[in-house]
């Protein structure tokens, strides 16, 4: 499933869709950035509530397919511009991380 296709799900909206055709391969949930870098796999959709500039660096370096900000968290205009420059897909979910993961589970499996 691609990031673009994932956006068909209810409760998800695109904040920055730079590479909608990127395939999603699994899901990782976490807010501690080093933990994410150590454990997330390339291609994972990364669900987090963190929304600072370092999230974009980690998303880029860990090579995740998209960042999904749970609990309706969004990015500032400045960070959205940075996400665009870095080519990072950023989505927002109105649901908590667990509910968001459940949504993805139903679609990815």
């Amino acid at each position: 499933m691609t990031v673009h296709e994932l956006l068909q799900l209810p409760d998800l909206t695109a904040l920055c869709l730079e590479d909608g055709e990127r395939e999603i391969d699994g899901v990782y949930i976490g807010d501690l950035l080093s933990w994410v870098m150590g454990r997330a796999q390339s291609g994972n959709a990364w669900i987090t509530i963190m929304s600072n500039i370092n999230v974009l660096a980690v998303a880029s370096l860990a090579d995740v397919s998209c960042v999904i900000l749970a609990e309706g968290v969004t990015l500032s205009e400045e960070l959205l511009t940075a996400a665009k420059e870095k080519g990072i897909n950023v989505l927002s979910s109105s649901k908590p991380a667990y509910e968001t993961a459940r949504l993805l589970f139903g679609s990815l499996s």
Binding site: D31, L32, L33, S34, W35, M37, G38, M50, N52, N54, V55
Partner: peptide, 9 residues
């Protein structure tokens, strides 16, 4: 609070 300091570096 920035998401670092997890002791994983």
């Amino acid at each position: 609070s920035l998401g670092f300091g997890a002791g994983m570096g």
